[in-house]
Design a protein around this nucleic acid. Structure first.
Lengths: 243, 243
DNA sequence: TCAATAGTGTCTGTTAGACATTATGGA
DNA sequence: TCCATAATGTCTAACAGACACTATTGA
């Protein structure tokens, strides 16, 4: 074995373990409401090769030295959207490469985070990013499709435990908007009277002095998120959802 | 730079990227009921160094070539317990090294899975493993304490969505045992009559012909898990748990 | 017999879901 | 005026939680 060969081998190993292709990456799934649906933030693939043009993918990056997973995900999202405060975010999980159909640009392992971004937030100026409603997605790598499904499911699973719907709304909103947000996240219709009664019992919102008139009907009062008590559910076990 | 120096450097990089210390590991959190509490399966640290003796830790390993994360976790768990069928298992999440307090034996990143093992399952013969009730844990690395808390929380969060309690019971059980299991997982007492009414409405169990007498009182009928319908919850939003 | 546990029947306050009604704007 | 939407009141069936009661064993 010649010295040149050893150096080549060393360079190869070094690139893999230290260089841009780390053993794992972080994927950020940013969700926002748009046209009565959920929309996800996709970025143009940074890979400049010709065959990678016009390919959309979840924003992704690797952690910097000493940077936590959550901080990395925050950085990835905030780089792609015009947002002032850090959005609500939670880890979806780790996803290994599904051995078949592996793209050369994909890392062996990725850890996905899902973030909720208020409606009306624009994609960032620097990054090549855009919102896509879930029903009109471009072609995505197989693993990213799976991550996206898991991310939406992770938000839905937390709906009745955390007030995530308010994270998707502006600071002031009408109760109809709030109900539509819950219906969007739950994927089914709710009864207006019951919804408001439950909302009142939970002491989650307070009315403002403002009213908003849109279209024909009576103007709606604006509310703001303002949790008061935390009356933990002291009811028995609900088996309805089991099975 | 001499050839020897280059070779040393190469060897160092190579060990990190390919050798036994991978960039990520899989941790398995096996839970079982024991003495009215949850118990976790811990293994003796495989590290044979003197200072690592008598150190208990979560069973852990790295994926083999082409092995999925879930399959790796299954292998880790089934190696440590006397179990016939694969237990219920779900991913808890990815945990990076908390930069400070990093032990040299810990990988940079670990992906934790939690498994529910039926009561009475014995630790495996080959492995140096044992059950520890959560209130009497030995000293664990800081990150493993955190993983353990997250694993228990992950199971509790799924309690009202999936019938996980049955995974902790033998095939035949009394309704009192089932109620105790729910009380153990929920961390609070339930009302007997309400519990049974909800159970009957959910069509989750069916009675067997057997009865079991333990101690003084009237013998209890044995039931088995047998989900019939899946009456998805068509009720409104419960805000009690929000806030 | 007493003690202890299993299992069931009944009552009541609460609430989800449905329906109806009033209020208030725009077309 | 008609229509559309907001907001609220009322009714009912269902259910959670509580209590009481019966049933069946061991001590």
């Amino acid at each position: 074995m010649t010295l040149v060969a050893i150096c080549d081998l060393f360079a190869d190993v070094s690139r893999e373990s230290r260089g841009k292709r780390q053993q794992y990456t972080i994927d950020g799934v940013a969700l926002t409401p748009q046209h009565g649906q959920l929309a996800v933030l996709l970025a143009q693939d940074v890979d400049t090769r010709v065959e990678a043009r016009d390919r959309w993918a979840l924003p992704s990056d690797v952690p910097r030295a000493g940077e936590s997973l959550q901080a990395t995900a925050q950085r990835i999202i905030t780089k792609c959207v015009e947002i002032e405060t850090a959005p609500w975010m939670v880890q979806v999980g780790a996803f290994a490469q599904t051995s078949t159909n592996a793209l050369p640009t994909e890392s062996e392992l990725t850890i996905a985070f899902v973030a909720l971004v208020p409606m009306g937030t624009e994609p960032g100026p620097a990054a090549e990013a855009a919102w896509f409603v879930l029903s009109e997605l471009p072609q995505l790598p197989e693993r990213q499709e799976h991550i996206l499904q898991s991310a939406v499911a992770a938000v839905r699973d937390r709906l009745d435990l955390y007030p995530v719907a308010f994270r998707l709304l502006p600071a002031a909103f009408t109760l109809s908007e709030l109900q539509q947000m819950y219906e969007l996240l739950l994927g089914r219709r709710l009864h207006k009277a019951s919804f408001r009664r439950a909302l009142q019992a939970a002491w989650l919102v307070e009315p403002t002095d403002e009213w908003r008139s849109e279209g024909r009907g009576r103007p709606a009062q604006l509310f703001r998120y303002s949790p008061r008590k935390r009356r933990r559910g002291r009811r028995g076990v609900r088996f309805d959802l089991l099975g």
